[in-house]
Write a protein that binds this DNA or RNA. Structure first.
Length: 462
RNA sequence: GGCCCCAUCGUCUAGCGGUCAGGAUCCAUGGUUUUCAUCCAUGUUACAGGAGUUCAAUUCUCCUUGGGGUCACCA
């Protein structure tokens, strides 16, 4: 069985890059009928917050991503880690290191001055004497001092690291007893049965250390997939300064989970020429063997296009439900269908959709000056009056076609082009020259409101 | 700086020795629309550079250049 996980550290919100690796892991597990776990890596008590952990869970909810079992918090697992640390100590695979922070810093400086690689010098590796007074020891693992460690990465291929270049006896437990990242990741993944690790390739160079832990503990090494980073416009790692990187900001901006997920799944992964993937299709088609090796630049042009696509194809009842977050209650509006059909093709986001709806529903208070200048000609008032007069007499006006018919009558009787009535009428109804079909607008707001807007426009421009 | 990874249109990508280097997005133009948008059509734009292997390299190898990541008692 395929078991994957997403293991963020709760130092902030869930960001785009994290979400993508989470999505990949999720899809790969789902596709194989496996399990997907969510584990919060909160071993660093100083930098974590419960709020951040909760924010991550909330983002998952919004996106409709589920995980198996309960959320696992590393902070609840101290006893487990202590057990395995003790095991390594007992077996002589780890040891207490009494080097003080000052001494360690000094060592580093000396090495830097000599242009050597900074590393722990193994001073207490085989220490037998009496430990110095007043120092709480950290615990270090005995890492190989020669040879090579090969990470069999399924994205990058085999990556060989020389022990001499990158390893030293790294700390697995701090002086206060708390375990460190490279240790707990390996322990947890092994204990949780995670056999497919999909994560950002910024972790690639940590992997040899984790392999050291796996081997010391006799655990089976999982398959690794290190997916390339997502960069900003400057080609650097995505950060808060690059605008929206918090997943929940996309909700506020009016993006749908479908669009965001679809956008993200195609960043660094592809399935031939296919661009549109429903959640079901993603689960069906995702395979990490198609993850590409190079970093991608984060650019939301395509996200806009996808979001517009999903909005266009969403049912009106679903849209009405989603628009509630913008204080727009359409769920029981009798012209909901006509309204949403008229505007959903011209909105890139739900937020825009809400604004477009309000532009129709609310009587215009200002008229765009340039538009008035362009659209209001000598005879415009006369045309609007004629149209208004016909409206007054008309009964049973419900559909856009009912209004369209009246417009046609006016055009025919006055022997004018459609633009002669369309342009000024558009100003009257919407205050500007762009927008949905006028027949639809009138059907949505009804006869009385239509007449009111016409009268108001005539008064304002006579 | 050491180590590691990466390199096709502006962007996301297809390609897995022989292709007019394909698709999408963006942009531009045209059509449809009373307008805007949608939709449709058309167009501009790419294999970082240099050696080698081969009858043949975008594709394989090496080097250069460029970019990125990582080097903690952070994760």
């Amino acid at each position: 069985m395929i078991v994957t996980r997403f293991a963020p550290s709760p130092t902030g919100y869930l960001h785009i890059g994290g979400l993508r690796t989470a999505l990949f892991s999720y899809l790969w597990a789902k596709k194989n009928g496996g399990k997907f776990f969510l584990r919060i890596e909160d071993t660093d008590k100083a930098r974590n917050s419960v709020e951040a952990a909760e924010a991550i869970v909330r983002a998952f909810e919004w996106l409709g991503l589920s995980y198996d079992g309960e959320v696992i918090y590393q902070s609840n697992r101290d006893e487990i880690y202590a057990k395995y640390i003790k095991q390594l100590l007992d077996e002589g695979k780890a040891y207490y290191c009494y080097m003080s922070k000052e001494e360690l810093a000094e060592l580093r400086e000396t090495q830097m001055a000599a242009k050597e690689r900074t590393m722990y010098n193994g001073k207490y590796r085989d220490f037998k004497g009496t430990p110095p007074e007043g120092i709480e020891p950290a615990i270090r693992i005995k890492a190989p001092q020669s040879g090579a460690i090969t990470v069999k990465d399924r994205v990058k291929g085999d990556v060989v690291f020389n022990a001499l270049d990158i390893l030293d006896d790294f700390v697995i437990a701090r002086a206060d007893g708390s375990p460190t990242y490279n240790f707990v990741v390996a322990v947890d993944d092994a204990l949780m049965g995670v056999n497919e690790v999909i994560r950002g390739d910024d972790h690639l160079s940590n992997t040899p250390k984790q392999i050291v832990v796996y081997e010391a503990l006799g655990f089976k090494i999982p398959n690794f997939y290190h997916v390339p980073m997502i960069h900003n416009h400057d080609g650097k790692k995505l950060s808060k300064r690059d605008g929206a990187t918090d997943v929940m900001e996309y909700k506020e901006m009016g993006y749908t989970p479908e669009a965001l997920l679809n956008f993200l799944v195609r960043l660094g992964w592809s399935y031939g020429d296919q661009e549109i993937f429903s959640m079901d299709e993603m689960q069906e088609l995702f395979n990490p063997k198609n993850i590409n090796k190079s970093a991608s630049i984060y650019n939301t042009e395509k996200l806009d296009w996808l979001n517009a696509h999903y909005i266009k194809n969403m049912s009106n009842s679903v849209l009405a439900e989603l628009l509630k977050q913008y204080d727009l209650i359409l769920t029981s509006h009798d012209k909901k269908e006509i309204l949403l059909d008229a505007i959903k093709e011209r909105a890139k986001t739900l937020k825009e959709l809400a604004e477009l709806a309000k532009e129709i529903l609310e009587t215009p208070t200002i008229y765009d000056e340039k538009a008035v200048k362009k659209a209001f000609k000598e005879d415009s008032i006369e045309v609007l009056n004629a149209f208004g007069a016909k409206l007054t007499k008309a009964e049973e006006l419900h559909l856009p076609s009912d209004y369209h018919q009246i417009m046609e009558e006016v055009v025919n009787e006055m022997n004018i082009g459609f633009g002669k009535i369309g342009q000024p009428l558009r100003i009257a109804l919407l205050g500007k020259l762009s927008g949905p079909g006028l027949d639809s607008v009138m059907a949505i707001i009804g006869k009385n409101e239509t007449m009111l807007r016409i009268a108001q426009a005539i008064a304002a421009h006579s």
